[in-house]
Nucleic acid binder design. Structure first.
Lengths: 151, 151
DNA sequence: AAATTTGTAACTTAATAAATTACAATAGAC
DNA sequence: GTCTATTGTAATTTATTAAGTTACAAATTT
């Protein structure tokens, strides 16, 4: 089972809200256009982000806002919000319990995979939404500077 | 995209060959019974493991053998053999390039995800097939000891 | 030669993520 | 207060992809 685009799209939503706040109406429709998906998909993700305490939304009004400072939201917080107990690696659960390997490999790999997952999660935990926003804005500024030179 | 059971099943195959070598015929059929899949799936994975230099096989004969010492095969080697360029996280490639966020988030997340992936891969690289085999055998011994006590 | 097994391609099935449809509930404009 | 725009969410459909199956040539062993 692989990690879906829900994670990427959720980071996108939060960054969009922060960057375009006060500049364009923060409707699920506008956000969906930026992601390239449907408004329902966006609202569904925003609902999960709200339940995780990362986002404030108003039923009926296009006024979402971050529930915390972007420096206080890590990518791992977002991951947990929309992927909760999904795993980076997949255990095969239909192995034969009568076999020495089949009967013990599930537990064994669960432990090994857990270590690798924790390492990845720790990296995500050390990257904040603010880091992502900063990088997006730097890349955009670079693009614009390059564009001006070419004109 | 999530990591499929191919990775788990491949570790299973290698551990099985090491543990049952000389004890049962190492046919794709027997290995498949332990994993709970079909012989073709096993042969397909063994083919990839062979191409990656981890396994020796003989066309027509049930005599597969590890191409390296189990201490010299890491889980990351196995991962690369059967999942090659698959990623733990998925970038959404249909974001709108006209948007500041949509136009820069793909690159930005590629970098962030890469760091997390490398952390996980490093952990996998530090775990050897021998570690997995040892753990399987210890767990099996514990089971058998417990079973004897109950009798 | 016969029986067994591997290697691989082509195809089908199953699982699951994503998208869509539909509609009730809320908010804001007038 | 009514109209319009919007959110929130359930139910369904579609698309994608991993897994499983079928088929058969090539190699091995007896």
């Amino acid at each position: 089972m692989k990690i879906s685009t829900r994670f990427s799209d959720s980071i996108h939503i939060l960054a969009f809200i922060n960057i375009y706040h006060g500049k364009v109406p923060l409707t699920s429709n506008n956000i969906a256009s930026s992601i390239g998906t449907s408004p329902v998909v966006v609202r569904r993700l925003m609902s999960q982000l709200r339940k995780a305490g990362l986002l404030n939304t108003v039923h009926g009004a296009a006024e979402p806002s971050l529930a915390k400072d972007p420096t206080a939201i890590s990518l791992y917080d977002v991951f947990l919000a929309v992927e909760d107990d999904s795993h980076l690696f997949t255990i095969d659960h239909k192995t034969n319990p009568e076999c020495i390997v089949g009967g013990n490999i599930q537990e064994t790999l669960t432990e090994a995979y857990h270590q690798a997952e924790v390492a990845a999660e720790a990296k995500l935990a050390r990257t904040s939404l603010q880091d992502i926003i900063d990088t997006i804005l730097v890349k955009q500024a670079q693009k614009e500077a390059k564009q001006r030179k070419e004109d």
